[in-house]
Design a protein around this nucleic acid. Sequence first.
DNA 1: AAGTGGTCTAGACCACGGC
DNA 2: CCGTGGTCTAGACCACTTG
Lengths: 212, 212
Amino acid sequence: MPSESELSDELGVSRATVRTALAKLAANGFILRKQGDGTYVNLRIRETSAQFGNLWDLVRLIEGNGYKSSIQPLSIEQRPAAETEALALSLNTADSLINLRRLFFADQRPVSLADNFIPSALLCEPLESIDGHLHIRDIFRTYFHQDIVFIITDIRSTIISAEVHRFLGGAAGRSILELHISFYGKNNLPLAFGVNYFDDSVLRLSLAQAWN
Amino acid sequence: MPSESELSDELGVSRATVRTALAKLAANGFILRKQGDGTYVNLRIRETSAQFGNLWDLVRLIEGNGYKSSIQPLSIEQRPAAETEALALSLNTADSLINLRRLFFADQRPVSLADNFIPSALLCEPLESIDGHLHIRDIFRTYFHQDIVFIITDIRSTIISAEVHRFLGGAAGRSILELHISFYGKNNLPLAFGVNYFDDSVLRLSLAQAWN
DNA sequence: AAGTGGTCTAGACCACGGC
DNA sequence: CCGTGGTCTAGACCACTTG
């Protein structure tokens, strides 16, 4: 690629501006930079399905693989928290939580069963008004008046359970990815905990990383 | 956290310098920033085992989980490439490649079997001189005179095979993570292809991401 | 030696959030 | 309204790679 000075001349902006733009491209793996050498285009980036910014955003991941995404809400229930759920959400056992269960499709094919657990105490609108088709980000904005600031994801491997198999289909007893996602808002407040059963035989989860 | 202006005053540097430093912290999830609001410390970052820069760097991942890492070389062989291997490395079928097989330990416990495939044509030193205890980065520097510039990783889930089970132990028939890693050098040149069988019951693979 | 990206300064204005 | 981070300018020097 042209050097920073060439770009700033051609585009009529300062070199600092060019640098911030190139830094964003480099952070997502689109270009590779080396001091004293130059800036190079990553020709393999199209072989990946995710970038760091959108990782674990199922909708973008499905569409990054070239499919059309859709969400089917399965159930929205309110019930007392089990011990592990309470722990993840900093709740007391038996505090009320909302369990939102949804199925994500790539084209017409189910690729992920997502279970989300949210403390009932955070709800600002009637439970019945929740639209399960929305992106989790918009669900929090609209019905909980909270912004998701960051998430922490655990990646695990598991054998598909009979219950999950009912929704995802395919071979029984095969292994799938299990992503445990903790959602946090401002002040490091736990907003939700999610378990995603993710069929990696349908959807590739791949990403590029610069090394060193 | 203090604002950018406060930091630049207190530290006696320009605001631009403060910004580049904070940007690096934010990219790795250590701090969270919001325009018009402020900069906040991510109190949960210690619960993660990986940052974006060191993801899929097994040595750092093992030590990030609090273990001591060690590498046991199992075998270094030279043989013709099978079809899938040739495809991944842009070789012709039956071109010679080097198969480096190693076992990674966390403390004394095996956590990952790593198979790496490298075109023989890239080798610059005698095959026998290769030290299998080294980091893959140093193996390429020393024996192939190449720098790894970026990698692309596929994350999959699989049932542990009898062969892998011999090395990793644990319950037979359980599911593990299978990471397919392509290593690239300058000019988007494929340097190597690796398959990592990764026991996620021993080592947590978790990371933080800012959202939006 | 020449050119690259990396770091840095000392200013300026803008978009956004909270009060 | 004020303070925050986001963007931008027009310079400067340094560290590194390559021919």
